[in-house]
Amino acid sequence: MLKYIIPLVIFIVMAVFLAVGLNLNPRDIPSPLIDKPAPAFSAPKLGAPSETLSQADMKGKVWLFNVWASWCVSCRSEHPILNQLAQQKAAVIVGLNYKDEPDAAKNWLTQLGNPYDVSIMDQDGRIGIDWGVYGVPETFVIDKKGVIRYKHTGPVTSQDVQAIFLPLIAKLQAENS
């Protein structure tokens, strides 16, 4: 009897491991920045390069930091979701226009709508490195104290908005700054 049980157990263990492995997303790398203060930046605004925005300007607000680019294909699928989210005015949405041409970026926003309260430009990708960006689009949620509370890698779907973003934003809005 044992002769049959042992291989069966080994098989089940392997099957479980492989099944879990197949369902893991290798692109989902846990960010060490969670619960850390948002990395400092000061960057020119898209469309108004003479003005700059820094992370300190966002103190006291719950904000989303969405990394996007006009060359990024998955950003296109994410865009309508962001537009919807922006309409709900749950939180300030700041865009990080990552390694993009300002003109192409501006065109993209006129064509597809602009969900961002403001977008800043990161043409050489240095802000991206500071924020640990490796796959566009990425979305961070930052609380009133300027601490990163959540990071989403890849396009945000409407399920993500309902299940993760809106509840988290509501919770963070209730916190004291």
Partner: peptide, 8 residues
């Protein structure tokens, strides 16, 4: 690098 991207 690890502060930004983790041990990975």
């Amino acid at each position: 690098m690890t502060q930004r991207y983790g041990d990975f």
